[in-house]
Simulated scan of single mutants.
Amino acid sequence: MRMHNADEHCGIAQAAVITGDWWNVLVLREIARGHVRFDALAAELGLSRKVLTERLGRLVASGVLRRSLYQRRPVRYEYLLTDSGLALLPLLVAMQEWGDRWVLGDGTTTATAARDGAEHARVHALTGTRLPTALELPAADGVDHPVVAPAATATVLFTYPGATGGTWEHRLFRDAWPQFRRAGVAVHGISGQLPYEQKAFADAEAIPYPLLSDTGHRLTAALRLPTFRAAGRLHLKRLVLVIDPERTVRHTLFPVDDNLPRAVEDALRLATTT
């Protein structure tokens, strides 16, 4: 890429060297989704082996990806995000929110979604997909928790914009918690809030299940979850996922509008019949 002399000291220009290429961005998107092996990337992207090898080499050389050996004969590598690569996830999520709003949408900001829109189609296409291995998020208790509870018969993930916008669903899940627990079903609430913000809310509302913080956008990028921007921050839109112990999404509830009691009832029913 040809650069003007002034670009040597411009962070935007330097970042564009890595993220300004269509295939580089899509490679990073797929690796964030858990497709970390060469053949899986080639299949997801429909990219020739030559071009994919070239793009992966560039991203490794730039320090965004690292190679991890998983097979010696023949030699095979997984491509994993470095700290530098993880720091790009908020950018990918912001690009998605912008595309959903301004390219696939009409430019309006909404905390819900049209049932015939791109976000609806994307969330419901999650059924049958598997979450990345060993995906953990910090929780309100100060400990990193697996997104999918390993000992549960199923895990119900529900996302919410924030404490002030999620009080009703938390109270509904809290009240239904004994039923989930008796069924061996884990419940995890997830937002983009910081852990200390979640802790204050969990203590005030006596929330019995973990509240996980996706401030780094690892889960949001992995599942391409719908977001909206308000007060200068990206917030997760409300949805419910039912996930089995093998980390496979079995059911999706989206959009979750005003009938939150029905969503909690459906989550329990679907989790106990998965």
Rank of each mutant, 00 (worst) to 15 (best):
L91C: 13
V64W: 08
G63E: 08
T108R: 09
E54D: 15
R76L: 15
L104G: 07
V103Y: 13
E54K: 13
W98D: 13
V93Q: 06
R58D: 02
T109R: 04
A94K: 00
R76G: 14
L91E: 13
M95R: 11
T109A: 07
G99T: 14
R67Q: 09
R101H: 01
T53H: 09
V64E: 06
D83A: 14
D83T: 10
L89N: 03
L89F: 04
V64N: 05
L91I: 15
M95S: 11
V60T: 03
Q96F: 04
R66Q: 14
V60A: 05
L92G: 09
A87G: 09
L56A: 05
R101M: 00
L80P: 04
W98V: 06
R55E: 06
E97C: 12
Y77G: 03
W98A: 12
A87Q: 11
R72S: 15
R73K: 12
E54C: 08
R55C: 10
R76D: 15
R72G: 09
L104H: 15
V75G: 03
L56Q: 01
R67G: 07
L89M: 00
P90I: 07
S62F: 05
L52P: 12
Y77W: 08
L89P: 13
V93N: 02
P74N: 02
V60G: 02
P74E: 01
L65F: 03
E54G: 12
T82C: 05
Y70C: 04
P90A: 00
G105L: 09
P90Q: 02
A87M: 01
L91G: 14
V75I: 13
T82K: 01
Q71H: 13
R66A: 08
G105N: 01
T108L: 14
A61K: 01
E97K: 14
P74H: 03
S68T: 14
D83Q: 10
A61P: 05
D100R: 14
S84N: 12
A87E: 04
M95V: 10
G99D: 15
S68P: 04
L56S: 01
G99P: 01
G63W: 09
V60I: 07
R67T: 10
S62I: 06
L92T: 15
R58T: 01
L89V: 02
R72F: 10
T110W: 14
Q71F: 06
S62P: 02
Y70E: 00
L52V: 05
P90M: 01
R55F: 09
E97T: 11
D100F: 15
G105Q: 00
L91D: 12
R73A: 13
L86I: 07
L56W: 00
Q96S: 05
L81Q: 03
E78Q: 06
M95Y: 12
D83Y: 06
E78Y: 04
A61C: 07
L104F: 15
D83M: 10
G63C: 08
T53K: 12
L80V: 02
A61S: 14
M95T: 08
L59H: 01
V64M: 09
R72N: 11
V75S: 12
L65Q: 02
T53E: 12
V103I: 07
D106Q: 02
W102T: 11
P90T: 07
V60Y: 08
D106C: 08
Y77R: 05
G57R: 00
R67C: 07
G107M: 06
